[in-house]
Write a protein that binds this DNA or RNA. Structure first.
Length: 219
DNA sequence: TATTCGATGTGCT
DNA sequence: GCACATCGAATAC
């Protein structure tokens, strides 16, 4: 009996939300440090888990590529909330993109989660995604990731620092990897800023020609 | 293997 | 009416 209780509590404790303070820092730093963290997505009794492998930083005020650049609108409103909130938007008539708001309230900055490595609930992810050729295509892209984790507008404004339908967890084991940086993908304004980050040699990142034009090796 | 292009719908001018 | 933080199929080589 005692063993069962210990086991029970350890499972509960396994995935620990990253706290608010983590997000209340410079967006570029948060963007880099989100690599390796876990997205925990709870759907009914199922828990889907994916390790973040690729992100992009979108700064407030001085970043013309950011949705928050011009002014607050109904769509970007949550970007101006406190760091740690979930920003989901719909793009190209087909896809959702999943972001975590950063910095203090009023800044208007966020990190786009572009790709992840499936960890748990892979069969459920496949079911949400539909036909795929191989495991590497399951979540290697912002639209694909949202489809696999069933992320849509319903999660807009949720708090990723609280254990709910979706949150970000510290990894169970600390892991060493190198971070590479390139320009951001698919934008026209602010296109030269090196604000895309990904885990070196991970097969679970987007396949893009920018991968050959790495700007900052290291870390 | 690299590049182009169509589908799709919402937000904003 | 147009731009868009995408994807995957089709095309050209």
């Amino acid at each position: 009996m005692i063993y069962c209780f210990q086991h029970y509590y350890r499972e509960l404790d396994k995935y620990k939300p990253v706290g608010r303070k983590f997000y209340l820092r410079d967006t570029v730093i948060v963007s880099r440090e989100l690599l390796g963290k876990l997205i925990i997505r709870k759907i009914k009794s199922e828990t889907l888990i994916a390790k973040i492998t690729e992100t992009e930083a979108y700064r407030g005020e001085d970043d013309p590529a950011s949705h928050s650049f011009l002014k607050m609108t109904r769509r970007n409103k949550v970007m101006f909330d406190t760091g740690g909130k979930v920003y989901v938007y719909f793009i190209y008539g087909n896809y959702y993109c999943f972001n975590i708001v950063t910095e203090k309230k009023g800044t208007g900055s966020a990190v786009l989660i572009r790709a992840a490595e499936p960890v748990e609930g892979i069969e459920a992810m496949k079911a949400f995604r539909g036909k795929i050729k191989n495991i590497y295509e399951l979540t290697n892209g912002p639209g694909k990731l949202c489809k696999a984790l069933n992320i849509d507008k319903l999660l807009y404004g949720k708090d990723a620092t609280e254990e709910g339908e979706i949150f970000i967890s510290h990894p169970v084991k600390r892991e060493k990897f190198q971070i590479l940086s390139t320009k951001r993908i698919g934008i026209s304004k602010g296109a030269d800023l090196p604000f895309r980050f990904f885990i070196k040699d991970s097969p679970f990142v987007t396949k893009h020609k920018f991968n050959r034009e790495v700007i900052i090796p290291g870390s």
